[in-house]
């Protein structure tokens, strides 16, 4: 059974995602809504990681390095390097969007397995996680749409 591989993938992708939200929030302190919302969302992802505990115990986990690789590719300058300016904000939020999408589809895959296994606890965890991921994606999409015209058209230099 390869569920352990996906539990591991989920686990590490959630941790990566929480770190990434915090990094983007801290890096854009001059956008107070971004900072605050990133912190709130990161805190909720921590909660998801916690709820994954019993699942990890039940099925075990194989850690994969994909999310870290993905993150390293997206955040070119590593953990500290939030980009600056309006376009920088859009790009950083877009990276978060990509990472969140990765988590989103990982939840989907694990959810399918949960159905096959008739594991109600896992299904509940997946449902809550999917809802949270949908919220993250919705916020990112909202904020990117608001910021994009000004960043792409009106910013100079």
């Amino acid at each position: 059974m390869h569920l352990a591989t996906y539990v591991g993938l989920l686990h590490s992708s959630l941790r990566t995602l929480a770190d990434a939200f915090r990094a983007v929030g801290d890096g854009h302190g001059e956008e107070p809504d971004v900072k605050t919302t990133c912190q709130v969302l990161a805190g909720r992802i921590d909660g998801q990681v916690e709820r994954l505990g019993p699942i990890v115990e039940r099925y075990g986990e194989h850690r994969e390095s994909e999310p870290e690789r993905l993150r390293a590719a997206e955040f070119e300058a590593g953990f500290t390097g939030a980009r600056s300016g309006g376009v920088g904000l859009v790009r950083d939020l877009q990276d978060l969007y990509a990472l969140t999408s990765f988590t989103d589809i990982t939840w989907t895959v694990v959810g399918q397995a949960a159905q096959g296994l008739r594991d109600q606890e896992l299904l509940d965890t997946v449902t809550a996680g999917t809802q949270d991921t949908a919220r993250q994606l919705a916020w990112l999409r909202t904020r990117i749409k608001e910021a994009a015209p000004q960043a792409l058209i009106a910013a100079h230099g």
Partner: peptide, 20 residues
């Protein structure tokens, strides 16, 4: 109408950034 009309706090932020 591509997004909600810009709220005041964001208007001031754009002014701060020099795009307004």
């Amino acid at each position: 109408h591509w997004a909600p009309p810009t709220h005041a706090m964001q208007i001031w932020r754009y002014a701060e950034q020099g795009t307004i």
